[in-house]
Amino acid sequence: MSSLNELKNEFVTKLLEESNNDVIISWTKEVLKQGVTPLSFFDQVFTPGMAEIGEKFSRLDIFLPELMDSAEKAKALSDQVLAPLLVKDTTSNSLMRGKVLICSVKGDLHDIGKNMVSLMLQVNGFEVIDMGVNVAPRDILGRAKEQEVDIIALSSLMTTSMPYMKEVVELRDGFNLKSKFAVIVGGAPITKEYSEAIGADSFGHDAVEAVQKCLLLIDRPVISK
């Protein structure tokens, strides 16, 4: 049988080259039949494989459509094969690292940067609820409460939308929800100083850093550079 590292490499190749979810699902089932435990597969093939996909995107060795396709195939594999097996395994950890609600705040219709962060979070094991663009502060908090998320991730590419980030933080604190959700902010005009000035809990300069900061916010080790 191949080593776990070889399996990880094969997993990455299949994610990028196979166009059909069924192929990767069949391949994973075959690997598991040969004696790799679901937990080993998850920890040493699936998770580092997805981190590698994220790293390839951060170097632009692959582009957004390939990243999206890989994330979609990985989700299908996780939902249909790994999650049911791992739920049975009482020694396993949860598949998901945490739940993140993400959106571009009111007044901002840009979504590509936000989508990149969303995908990088997913390939690094987060469950992501994407509210899209131009989302009002009260709608953000309402959905965050309803979905019991761990982190609210706010994107703005425009200075004229930045006040709505501040409003989200103010409303969160005003409604005594600070202990419920961390807020991370990002986007071209957003700086660490601005993030601190409005009382956000963290700031990500780009999609890669956003993942690192979200991992730190939920106090988990960083796996993807």
């Binding site: 009111k106 901002d108 200075t159 004229t160 501040k166």
Partner: peptide, 9 residues
């Protein structure tokens, strides 16, 4: 601050 979609804009 200038808020998009508001009188401030």
């Amino acid at each position: 601050p200038v808020k998009a979609g508001s009188p401030w804009e």
